[in-house]
Amino acid sequence: MSGHEFQSYFPESGGVDYSDTSTAIDDRAIAELRQLAGRYPQARSALLPMLHLVQSYDGRISPRGIEVCAEILGISTAQVSGVATFYTMYHRRPAGKHHIGVCTTALCAVMGGDILLEKVSEKLGIHEGETTPDGLFSLERVECNAACDFAPIMMVNWEFMDNMTPAKATEILDKLAAGQEVQSSRGATITDWRSAERVLAGFDDGRADEGPTAGEASLRGLNLAQERNWTAPAPGSTTASAPAPSQEKK
């Protein structure tokens, strides 16, 4: 009822999961990591994209991923670990094929995000921060994702699922589970989380041209202006100091 419980004991904090040393980082991955490091005036700038790329290979920030990044950038593994544990998009344990985020920051929470998270959690049978045993879904309580005019918001692999309701969410999850095509409200066809991480690292997946220019809410002001024939002043038609519209249009 009141959101998540207050946690005060942190037995597993402080680093990634060292017990799982599995990795898919191969020569190609290392070459790509080096390529990222080479894009910047100073190589260390590439660390965030490099860690995204590590996740696209290993499904999490793996010990091997930390070591490789440290070696390529000439910094200590502790420094890489400090960065990897600072940012919430980096996972210590494998995320699901599809990573589901439900926004429960104040506005989304009030608009129904809390209820939505509860329903999604029930539907998937996992709590936030967990991954389904079949590896298909992981669930995260996300903070404001900059789509408040589409609240409540759900994210699938960091694609927007706007104006979410429990019924719509259930339908999306069912389709994803069944391997059917799902379209983001304002994005591309849903791929999978690892592919998304690869795009964030800076590797194109050729899907930029999918999806609309803008969502409905984004266009409300523009549509209204067009209806009412409101525009910005024509260049050259104005003097330097116009009175404020609030005073004019009352």
Binding site: T213, A214, G221, L222, N223, A225, T231, A232, P243, E248
Partner: peptide, 21 residues
Amino acid sequence: MTDMLTPVLTANWADDRAWKL
């Protein structure tokens, strides 16, 4: 004088594939 809404940055958001060069 100035209109209530003044789309400049948002002016092309309803265009088809406005993101293309």
